[in-house]
Write a protein that binds this DNA or RNA. Structure first.
Lengths: 186, 186
DNA sequence: AGCCCGTGTTCGTCAAGTCGAACGGATCGG
DNA sequence: CCGATCCGTTCGACTTGACGAACACGGGCT
């Protein structure tokens, strides 16, 4: 998710997109959500800054989770480079924690520790639809990602990419160590 | 996410929880988020219905995704030393990795990348019951685990310990880097 | 044509969120 | 002991979002 972008335009686009997906009119959605249609009109126009209650009721009426309305659609491949991560420094300790990925319910995440050595290019077949792979490089360098657009990762880098298409792992240095979290939808 | 629950109390609790996690004061958080501290005070008291912009800026200042603030919050010590892997090499998958932990359904796992420096012992208070923390050391050395029985981990080591009791993180070397997977039951 | 729904927009009014200041309390240091 | 400096809360003034009514537009019908 983009942590700095103003969510105004995102909400406007998401509301219109989800409403058209359901196939109801602006008036009808406003009625179901229990808000004035003028309010909804302004929201879809990108004008305005809804309260949480207002946006929540719209999410309920649309049958989509709240976060769907405020977060931009996640790109298939997401990379957070070491040091470029949006983090927050704690005052009380020399502690910097970066939230790389938020786990959804109704999905299982298996944690793997993977050692790789150069020369062995592994082509992984597609897993079940909707699966996502999260990779954090501990040591060494890897080239990974979808077979069509591999990414090079260095220590501390994080990447998430779809696991339901063919993808690759290739170590670029000896004794490469990565943490791999495989996410399977229920 | 609960589609029907009123988000007011949830937001209040989440704001206070996340703020205390970061370890800053209400005044300081308000300053960083660029909002009046009176507004934040009312929000944490459960009074009020923040606008999206207000809550968004708080999420940015806290370093947590937006959804963490609106969604309601929804384990003995196990250590696997590097090289001492329990032989369960994944055969179903097409890579040679060590399956450290199998994710259960109906639990969310958030992935963090954490940088630590020595000298600062961080005491984390208990999280919600049933939560588990998984830690893999990428670089450096850490002493972590329940406050009553800390463990020393080296690069490649993996440990899982309960997160619903008081626990500690302490770096034993400068520039220590760990991958932390926090598991919250639904 | 005229009419009646439906769509989504714009307008004033009212309530509510946000702001800044002032407040009481706690802690530290001269 | 008392000023200084934090903390978090409460108060009034201002700004803004939410509401309802009136609006213009388009299509289907008699």
């Amino acid at each position: 998710m983009d942590r700095t972008a103003p969510p105004l335009a995102t909400i406007a686009a998401a509301l219109r997109r989800e409403r058209e997906r359901v196939g109801i009119s602006l008036t009808e959605l406003a009625r179901r959500a229990g808000i004035a249609k003028s309010t909804l009109s302004q929201l879809e126009a990108g004008t305005g800054n809804p309260s949480v209650e207002t946006l929540w009721s719209l999410g309920v009426a649309l049958g989509v989770p709240f976060s769907r309305l405020v977060e931009p659609p996640t790109p298939p491949v997401r990379v957070i480079r070491a040091g470029e991560a949006p983090g927050i420094r704690s005052e009380q300790a020399d502690f910097t924690g970066i939230l790389l990925s938020v786990g959804s319910r109704h999905a299982r995440r298996d944690i793997y520790l993977v050692e790789l050595d150069p020369g062995a290019l592994r082509n992984a077949q597609a897993h079940i639809p909707g699966s996502v792979e999260h990779m954090i490089v501990a040591r060494g360098r890897v080239r990974t990602g979808p077979a069509s657009e591999p990414i090079e990762l260095r220590p501390g880098d994080y990447a998430a990419f779809p696991g339901d298409v063919e993808h690759v792992y290739e170590a670029l240095e000896p004794d490469t160590l990565v943490v791999l979290v495989m996410e399977h939808p229920d």
